[in-house]
């Protein structure tokens, strides 16, 4: 077997960051297969010191350099200028800037830069990886000749010895869950509208939202919508939670509902599959690819109709079982052996 030098570059390294976790996992696979592999980053948080090296110390001419791209980065020009040989961009998606333009202009600019840089990268190299078919389609639109899907790996072991902490919610009706940072493109306010609609059928319906209040103005807006619709008592904004609390929430919920209008991958959909939680989702962006035909998806946000669908699913135990069984099968595609095999397949391609 030919041993290679395959390094990775990420913008910011932090143990809490999904891209960092992904890079660390790939490094483990590469080293386990006898390849030389280091991770470099532009900024490194204390929890990654010793595992990740600063980009300015990069001197190597690696056989392959996997660059994890999302928001606009100052490193792209340097990569194109000096490291295009062997460079493989790994695209984790950029939320379109219009979702932030009116209230977070700086972030909107970084998003716009990220999209423009994807096109610049496509002019310099022809092959890239994306973590969903949706992301690969973006890459092809940007000009990449080949874009290969390498999904994010679902690490079952992470949940193995977790003692769940259940949420403090007493409900006799359905408990809905959505996980994701509080941001306009995730459309949590639409879930509050759905909560209102569900409560017209099942008055004790509850909605749990897990995720940091990343966009404070939008978090206030969600509370405002809840107050206007008179469903504040059914809305539980749990914020950023521990792993134990997150597992507790998945276990306590009856249905995972996503009305998000932009997902680059949608890890909580996979988590729901793992926790045998039936998924009802609005078909948008990478949601369709990640679900791969399982769960129940809708193409329109008719809140009254959606409420009836969810209540029907909640009442029909046999249907829930069938949904969960299909989801379990789909989960296998994201487990380590399958993704590892896929990773080495696409890495060995010319």
């Amino acid at each position: 077997m030919t041993t290679l030098t395959v390094h990775q570059l990420i913008n910011g390294a932090s143990q809490r960051d999904a891209i960092t976790q992904n890079a660390l996992l790939w490094q483990r696979w590469l080293r386990g297969s006898g390849h030389t592999s280091e991770i470099f980053a532009l900024s490194i948080e204390a929890d990654c010191e010793g595992q990740v090296r600063p980009w300015h110390s990069y001197r190597s001419q690696a056989d392959k350099l996997l660059y994890h791209h999302s928001l606009g980065s100052p490193v792209v020009a340097d990569l194109i200028e000096n490291h295009a040989n062997g460079l493989i961009p790994v695209y984790h998606n950029v939320t379109p800037p219009h979702w932030f333009a009116g209230f977070q202009p700086e972030l909107a600019q970084r998003a716009a830069d990220g999209i423009a840089q994807l096109e610049q990268l496509a002019q310099a190299v022809s092959v890239g990886f994306g973590d969903s078919a949706f992301n690969c389609a973006d890459m092809e639109r940007a000009g990449f000749k080949e874009a290969h899907v390498v999904p994010i790996t679902f690490d079952e072991k992470r949940y193995a010895n977790v003692t769940p902490i259940p949420p403090k919610i007493n409900a006799n009706g359905p408990v809905l869950l959505f996980t994701g940072r509080i941001a306009p493109h995730k459309c949590q306010a639409d879930l509050v509208r759905l909560l209102y609609a569900c409560r017209q059928i099942e008055p004790d319906t509850q909605l749990m939202l897990i995720g940091s209040e990343w966009a404070k103005a939008y978090a206030d807006w969600i509370r405002y919508v809840a107050a206007e619709l008179g469903v504040t008592d059914g809305l539980h904004m749990l914020g950023s939670v521990s792993l134990e609390e997150m597992v507790g929430a998945y276990r306590a919920a009856d249905c995972y509902v996503s009305l998000s209008e932009h997902e680059g991958f949608g890890m909580p959909l996979i988590e729901s599959m793992f926790f045998d939680l039936p998924v009802v989702a609005y078909r948008s962006t990478a949601v369709t690819d990640t679900l791969g035909g399982v769960g129940v998806t809708v193409g329109r946000k008719d809140f009254a109709g959606l409420a009836q669908l969810i209540i029907k699913l909640w009442q029909d135990g046999a249907w829930q079982q069938r949904v969960v069984a299909h989801q379990r099968k789909r989960l296998h595609d994201f487990l380590e052996p399958q993704v590892r095999q896929r990773f080495f397949e696409v890495l060995s391609m010319k």
Partner: peptide, 22 residues
Amino acid sequence: SQLDIELNDEVYSAADLEASIG
């Protein structure tokens, strides 16, 4: 119903569900 449902199920079809919801 205006949901445009898609699902893979042995018992219910999308049309059944749309009709039932309606």
